[in-house]
């Protein structure tokens, strides 16, 4: 079975993440860009499935030129090839626009399974996977912590707030994984070396036949009106327990009428 894994390059969560204070878009220069950790888990699932059932894994990303680094990471882990969608017109695309572009690329790939992260660390819309399923007319099973494939049927454990469910869906399908799905393997030296030789196809909007008016900041249906850094919490203070801190905390909550 052939699998496409969607990976996204995001600002390092452990760095100081910033927004541009002009248009409230992501300030990519503020932090190192890294492959989203959740997507390395998607790659792991895809590799495990192709090890069991045959087929190959294609890593797909839409992002600026530097996003190739994220693709190389997926290739080093074991993906066979990669697709990098990049075009100056894409900057500032919202989730709906992003899904239109990714769907166009996925149509060309014609795979049996599409694996994504359940939620990107920067976008956090958790909507791209469902949007892809909608555009491609496929079933979606999101937020999956365990998955098996038998013939052309997948069975998955889907975890949502307050509970979980066992779900069955026919292939092809879109699956988004949560961080419990698998620990990502570390690329070994051989993997890193061979990644340099694996094919990375670069696609532009013209290659995909997507209308440039429907993407980017200008073509997206959502627009930032204004924004502000959250004011630092005022009046916050920390005490060291002298044996009465519990009682003091209670007094604090009661005096402020929050409890």
């Amino acid at each position: 079975m052939d699998i496409a894994v969607l990976i996204k390059q995001v600002p390092d969560t452990y760095g100081e993440r910033r927004l541009h204070e002009t248009d409230w878009s992501l300030d990519r220069a503020a932090t190192d860009a890294v492959i989203d950790e959740i997507d390395t888990r998607g790659v792991e699932l895809a590799l495990t499935l192709t090890e069991q059932h045959g087929g190959e894994v294609t890593a797909v990303t839409m992002g600026p030129d530097g996003a190739t680094d994220a693709l190389r990471k997926a290739l080093a882990m074991g993906a066979a090839k990669a697709v990098h969608i990049t075009d100056p017109a894409l900057a500032g695309s919202d989730a709906v626009a992003t899904s239109a572009v990714l769907a166009a690329a996925l149509r060309q790939l014609d795979v049996d399974l599409i694996v994504t992260g359940n939620e990107s660390t920067d976008g956090r819309s958790a909507a791209v996977p469902a949007m892809l399923a909608e555009r491609l007319g496929l079933p979606a099973v999101t937020s999956v912590r365990a998955l098996t494939v038998d013939g052309d049927t997948l069975t998955a454990e889907r975890v949502v707030e307050g509970g979980w469910a066992r779900i069955q869906a026919p292939l092809p399908a879109v699956v988004s994984v949560n961080e419990k799905i698998a620990e990502p393997r570390y690329p070994n030296f051989k993997g890193i070396m061979s990644a340099k030789k694996k094919p990375v196809t670069t696609l532009t909007l013209a290659d995909l036949g997507v209308d440039a008016d429907r993407v980017g900041a200008a073509g997206s249906a959502t627009r930032a009106v204004d924004g502000a850094p959250r004011p630092p919490r005022t009046g916050g203070h920390t005490i060291t327990d002298d044996g009465s801190a519990g009682a003091q905390a209670a007094r604090y909550l009661i005096e402020r009428k929050v409890l």
């Binding site: 919202d94 989730a95 709906v96 899904s99 359940n118 956090r124 819309s125 958790a126 909507a127 791209v128 996977p129 469902a130 949007m131 399923a133 909608e134 555009r135 979606a140 999101t142 937020s143 975890v159 949502v160 707030e161 997206s220 249906a221 959502t222």
Partner: peptide, 21 residues
């Protein structure tokens, strides 16, 4: 929620609008 965000994503595509998340 997880369900809600999935529904919102699909609906926004159908309506050709955007998700205000």
């Amino acid at each position: 929620t997880f369900d809600g965000r999935e529904l919102a994503g699909r609906l926004a595509v159908r309506l050709d609008s955007g998700v205000l998340a």
